[in-house]
């Protein structure tokens, strides 16, 4: 039961590895970027999940002395990390478009073949 209780970490690990697999194994540059986004999203979940306190609410001071708050800081951090992730994906997609313009393909092996010629 101990292992199942930590299910959110399992989600993190499985998502991380799924993304990583796509980055490593797929030859299509677009699919690689999808994998990369998954990979980053997994880490966002790691941060979000660690900030949750059982029974905790949003950290807004209500006057109640026994109120339990979740930690807001990781969410703020992840907001920044999401922005970074979006910029990376956007730049990556931009590069894929340029590659398509120059090489006429977005398959890694075909591009290598063209360069070797």
């Amino acid at each position: 039961m101990e292992l199942l209780g930590l299910y959110h970490y399992w989600v993190f690990a499985i998502l991380l590895m799924t993304g990583f697999y796509a980055v490593v194994a797929k030859l299509n540059l677009f699919k690689k970027l999808i994998g990369l986004s998954l990979f980053q999203a997994a880490v966002f979940l790691l941060y979000i999940t660690m900030s949750k306190v059982d029974g905790g609410t949003a950290p807004i001071f209500s006057g109640a002395a026994d109120a339990v708050f979740s930690n807001p800081l990781p969410q703020v951090l992840i907001l920044t990390a999401i922005v970074v992730g979006i910029s990376t994906t956007a730049l990556g997609l931009g590069i894929v478009v340029r590659i398509k313009e120059e090489y006429g393909s977005i398959e890694e092996d075909e591009i290598q073949e063209i360069d070797r010629r």
């Binding site: 990583f20 980055v23 540059l29 690689k32 990369l36 990979f39 980053q40 880490v43 790691l46 990390a81 970074v84 990376t88 730049l91 990556g92 590069i95 894929v96 340029r98 590659i99 120059e102 090489y103 890694e108 591009i111 290598q112 360069d115």
Partner: peptide
């Protein structure tokens, strides 16, 4: 372009590992 794509992928993986 393909070189920078590779750099982007590997650089982002590196940064994400750091973030973990």
């Amino acid at each position: 372009l393909p070189s920078v794509f590779k750099y982007l992928i590997m650089g982002t993986i590196g940064a994400t590992f750091y973030l973990i």
